[in-house]
Simulated assay, not measured.
Amino acid sequence: MNKMAENLMHALQYSCYGGGAAGLKHVEVPVPAPNQGEVLLKLEATSLNPVDWKIQKGMLRPVFPVKFPHIPATDVAGEVIKVGPGVTNFKAGDKVVGTLNHFIGGGLAEFAVAKESLTVARPPEIPAAEGAGLPIAGLTAHQALTQSAGVKLDGSGKQVNLLITAASGGVGQYAVQLAKLGNTHVTATCGARNMDLVKSLGADEVLDYKTPDGVTLKSPSGRKYDAVIHCATGIPWSTFEPNLSANGKVIDITPGPRALLTFAMKKLTFSKKQLVPMIIKPKKENLDYLVKLVKEGKLKTIIDSKYPPSKAEEAWAKIMDGHATGKIIVEP
């Protein structure tokens, strides 16, 4: 290998807001170097999340991305090639799962730099694609259930009646599986074609979101929901409200301006029913817990589709479309 080729890698990047899949360009860029507390990974799989295209569209400006050009995507599985100063948990050759910094991205490339603090070991039983699906989607489901909805995943505590919307999507599929580790009754909504899948993940009741009951979100067994893990978009508070128990809450994992306004209004009126906007805070120990569950066969990553890096634009178009069943993976 000549010196030139050795220090360059293939990547996809975009140079301005907007443009969708067509805005992604195949480029050769220098392989990044790990700094203090970082590891350099050779990527084996990257999973896409809706936030990736939202950043490109400019919906999170001026925070994300920090600068252009930007290599998108953050959820990765790979092999440690090199460790930066101060790294103690990993060495070259270790297989890992990690989430990269959203400010910097870097997932749609051959190599990426990850913080040791957001990287966990990946046991040999877990294929790269399954591992790469976990970070943002799995951690969002975990945080919504354990922190916001108060579900204890060891099965203790009183029963919690849950509604999970868009249960066949990236976050929803993990939310159903994780919820059923706790003492819960799960009602889930999804499209007609995914009802059997969502039942197989453990949901007690499944609604086709296009039917009258699906539109009103009524539980077939007449239950009121203690918490809603809201993974869909475009459902107004007025649809949730009559279905909630006295202290029921809607945990909105993609809160927009309207959700934040509703949240403020409910606070002002001292309503016991609450809309809770959730911002994900990735934690290493929680990611480690999810990886262990996959290893033990208690959690699985449902994969919608896999694309080689040469067709990553197709994966991007698919995540923007919003109808994937489970996770979309780019895998060399």
Results as ranks from 00 to 15, higher is better:
A5M: 13
E6K: 14
L8A: 09
S15K: 13
Y17K: 02
Y17W: 04
Y17M: 00
A22C: 08
A22V: 11
G23T: 12
L24V: 13
V27D: 12
P32C: 03
A33L: 13
P34Q: 06
P34A: 12
Q36N: 14
L41E: 05
A45N: 03
A45V: 03
L48R: 11
L48H: 09
W53H: 14
K54Y: 07
K57I: 10
G58A: 08
L60C: 07
L60V: 06
P65H: 04
I81F: 08
V83I: 15
V87L: 09
F90M: 07
A92I: 05
A92K: 11
D94M: 02
G98T: 06
N101Q: 04
G105M: 06
G106L: 09
A109Q: 11
E110R: 07
E110Q: 15
S117T: 15
T119H: 04
R122C: 14
P127E: 05
A128Y: 08
A128L: 08
A129W: 08
L134H: 00
L134T: 02
L134S: 01
A137W: 00
G138K: 04
L139F: 05
T140Y: 00
H142Y: 15
Q143V: 10
T146M: 08
Q147T: 13
S148P: 04
G150A: 12
L153N: 04
S156T: 15
S156M: 07
Q159S: 08
T165C: 08
A167F: 00
S168N: 07
G170T: 00
G172V: 00
Q173R: 03
A175H: 02
A175V: 00
K180S: 01
T184H: 04
V186S: 01
V186W: 01
T189M: 00
R193P: 04
M195E: 14
M195I: 15
D196E: 15
V198I: 08
E205M: 01
K210L: 13
D213G: 10
L217V: 05
K224P: 09
Y225P: 07
V228L: 01
V228T: 05
V228A: 05
H230D: 15
I235M: 09
P236C: 01
S238P: 12
E241C: 11
N243S: 07
L244C: 02
A246I: 12
V250D: 01
I251H: 00
I251L: 00
I253E: 00
I253A: 04
P255G: 06
F263E: 15
M265S: 14
K266E: 09
K266Y: 02
Q274R: 13
M278A: 08
I279L: 15
K281I: 14
P282Y: 04
D288H: 12
D288S: 15
D288G: 07
L290A: 02
L293A: 01
V294L: 12
K295W: 00
K298E: 02
K298W: 01
L299D: 11
L299Q: 12
K300L: 07
I303T: 02
K306A: 12
I319R: 04
A324T: 13
A324W: 10
K327E: 06
I328G: 06
I328K: 08
P332Q: 09
